[in-house]
Amino acid sequence: MPKLFGREPALWLGLVAIVVKTLTAFGLNVTSDQQATINAAAAALVGLAVAVIAHDGVSAALLGAVQAVIALAVGYGLHWSADQQAVVMSLVAAAVAMWTRTQVTAPVPAVLPPATPSTASRE
């Protein structure tokens, strides 16, 4: 992992939560629902970063991060219906699936059908 996260991504998430609470205490106009959404988005983005760095579960982490960012945007006034959110998530899922397809190889080689004898070999 990069030096920024070290071995403690959860510690960084705690710091984000505390910074948001501190800013709210000193005048930032953020509701408790918005604070929760900020923390959820931060968790999803850190999860994505850890997945990319560890090369494990990147597709799921990316989808979770996009979903969290959309939730954050809606929480701050983006006026998307549930249908619009679903369409965007479907587009992202399709793009991730297409990218994943280029990254995955089969664990076993393709089975070739048995060769049929040619008429020349019969004679």
Rank of each mutant, 00 (worst) to 15 (best):
E123T: 11
M1F: 13
T100P: 01
P113A: 01
A42F: 02
W99K: 10
A54T: 10
Q35L: 04
A60G: 09
L23W: 05
V96S: 07
A54Q: 11
V88H: 15
T105R: 07
A120G: 01
R7M: 13
Y76V: 06
V88L: 15
L112R: 08
A42K: 00
I18K: 13
D83M: 07
E123Q: 07
K21V: 05
L91W: 05
A61T: 02
T116I: 12
A43G: 00
L23S: 04
T116M: 05
T116R: 12
G75C: 05
V50F: 09
A73I: 03
M89H: 09
A120Q: 14
A51E: 01
A10D: 15
E123P: 12
A44D: 10
A94N: 07
V96T: 08
K21E: 12
Q34K: 13
A73V: 00
Y76S: 02
F26Y: 12
Q35K: 13
T31Q: 10
V30L: 15
V88A: 12
G77R: 05
A51S: 06
W12A: 10
M98G: 03
N29H: 15
L72G: 00
A17S: 10
G64T: 05
H55Y: 08
V74Q: 07
G77W: 04
V16Q: 02
W99A: 11
N29K: 14
L48F: 07
A97S: 01
A25T: 13
P109G: 14
T22R: 14
V96L: 04
P2K: 11
G14A: 02
G77C: 12
L112I: 08
N29M: 14
T119D: 03
Q85L: 06
G57H: 12
A120I: 09
A106I: 01
